[in-house]
Structure formats: C-alpha cells, structure tokens
C-alpha cells in the first residue's frame, strides 16, 4: 500500500525526516531522509513528499544502470546499491521524478527513495497530524 499525503494537515515539524534517517542510517540527518518537508512559515503552509509508488515510475526508465526496480505497480521501489553509482554525482533518477520524491544521499553518493520500511513506515507511525498515512488506511480521529 503506497503512502498518502495531506499537505493541509502537515504542521511542518520535520519529525518524519528525522525518524526516517534515524531508522535507515542510525543518525538524525534530514538531508538523508527519504521523505521531505517543504515549509513556508510565513504563509503557514507545508508540503510533504516521498515516493508514493506512482503508476508510471519514470525513475526506473531514467536509470542508466537499471538499478531501480519494483515487483509490481504501486509497490515500493528497490534500489540496487551494487548497481547504483549515483551517476557520478549527477543522478538521472532525481530530475526524472515529476514529484520531487527521489533524493540523492551525499554521504553514500547513491539514490534514495522510500522503501516503506519493509511495510511498516516509521514516518506514518510518528505523524501525529496524519499528514502522512498509508493509502487505504482509514483515519478515524
């Protein structure tokens, strides 16, 4: 089940970024997160984005190393870190994503995309305002 975002519920706290990087890399490093928040404090608006397993996945086609794959439509991406070479610092997959949901890890020099934490996305668990949820999950409160 892919991720779903409700921007008007996003409070701009960036907890999702911190939790994502902590879970995957063992450190609090928002620039290594697979989910990103864009804040506009002056207007009181935020937007949250991560790979939500879009139907077309142009990143897969764009990758010159065939490092990106998925097992089916609307399934999370798998990035083969053996194959991904970060395109020498100029990754083709990042601009290929029309949603700005593919990122580049400056530490490993490889592509970064949401892997849904293997089915239990930590960002969803920690998002108290339900700006990030799993599509199909009913939000009751």
């Amino acid at each position: 089940m892919p991720l779903k975002f409700v921007n008007k519920s996003c409070t701009g706290c960036r907890l999702c970024e911190l939790i994502c990087s902590a879970t995957h890399f063992g450190e609090f490093a928002p620039t290594r997160a697979r989910i990103r928040v864009n804040n506009n404090p002056l207007e009181g608006k935020s937007a949250v984005m991560a790979c939500f397993s879009c139907p077309k996945a142009p990143c897969i086609v764009a990758c010159p190393r065939e490092a990106i794959s998925r097992v089916g439509a609307r399934q999370p991406l798998t990035i083969d870190l053996q194959k991904c070479d970060g395109c020498g610092g100029n990754p083709a997959c990042v601009p290929a994503c029309p949603y700005g949901a593919m990122y580049f890890d400056l530490v490993t020099q490889k592509a970064l995309a949401c892997d849904l934490c293997g089915g239990d996305p930590q960002c969803v668990k920690y998002c108290y305002s339900h700006a990030v949820s799993l599509a199909g999950v009913e939000i009751t409160d």
Binding site: K8, T11, G12, C13, G44, Y126, Y128, S129
Partner: peptide, 13 residues
C-alpha cells in the same frame, strides 16, 4: 492550520 516547531507533535501554533 496547526503549526509546529521542529520535532513537536503538539503543534500548538
């Protein structure tokens, strides 16, 4: 809208 400081689920703003 509710607005939050970094890391805070309370979002008291």
């Amino acid at each position: 809208a509710s607005r939050a400081c970094a890391t805070c689920p309370l979002a008291c703003g």
